[in-house]
């Protein structure tokens, strides 16, 4: 499993991660981010794309 962290001090709700993997990342009606904190290894490519496309470099993955 891959652990996903988002630094909420950095996140500015751009929604890049939501566009890449809408099943793993969501914005609520106030544009606050929520996400799946443990993700199967099969989704590594999506997670890496999210990490590298986040304008605030707020996403970190582990494992």
């Amino acid at each position: 499993m891959i652990k996903v962290h988002i630094d909420l001090n950095l996140c500015q709700s751009h929604g890049e991660c939501v566009a890449i993997a809408p099943d793993l990342f969501q914005l609520d009606e106030n544009d606050f981010i929520s996400w799946q904190e443990e993700v199967d290894d099969s989704r590594r490519a999506d997670l890496e794309a999210a990490v590298n496309t986040c304008p605030m470099t707020a996403i970190r993955i582990e494992g």
């Binding site: 929604g15 939501v18 566009a19 809408p22 914005l27 609520d28």
Partner: peptide
């Protein structure tokens, strides 16, 4: 404008 969640829908 101040509508990030909605923009994600348009992107798809």
């Amino acid at each position: 404008v101040n509508a990030a969640r909605r923009l994600a829908w348009y992107r798809r």
